[in-house]
């Protein structure tokens, strides 16, 4: 009976469903790598936002700002990285506090909402920059 399991878990351990799901280390790393990338991106965004918010902040000035290729590209990078980091971070928070079916519901809701916000934000930047 040489039945080997590909995921190295004993049948009992798999049935219990506790412990490593094998992607914890990956999750840990990508959260931290995204954090590293967010250091310059966030500083850039905060200084830019303050600059815009204290200016006229009307349609034409903001449109002009977003349309510059360097700004559009950096905005897309900021949105994508922040939301990727955020979906991983929120997942950690949900896993800490929610159990049972609430856990699954919240995880799915969080993932769908993050995807929608990322798609909408990036689409908006591209439309303004290319339009």
């Amino acid at each position: 009976m040489a039945k080997t399991s590909k995921d190295l878990k004993s049948p009992l351990s798999r049935a219990r469903g506790l412990g490593s799901a094998k992607d914890g280390v990956h999750h840990f790393w990508v959260l931290r790598i995204s954090a590293l990338a967010l250091i310059p991106l966030s500083l850039w965004f905060v200084f830019s936002l303050a600059r815009l918010a204290t200016g006229p902040a009307d349609f034409y000035s903001v449109q002009h700002w977003v349309s510059a290729p360097s700004v559009a590209v950096t905005l897309v990078l900021f949105l994508a990285t922040a939301l990727y980091h955020s979906v991983l971070g929120v997942q950690e928070v949900i896993l800490d506090y929610a159990v049972g079916s609430l856990r699954l519901t919240l995880l799915l809701a969080s993932q769908f909402l993050h995807a929608i916000v990322a798609a909408a934000g990036i689409f908006a930047v591209l439309k303004v920059a290319l339009g």
Partner: peptide, 8 residues
Amino acid sequence: ALWLIALA
């Protein structure tokens, strides 16, 4: 993102 959507 909403602010950018409004802009777009």
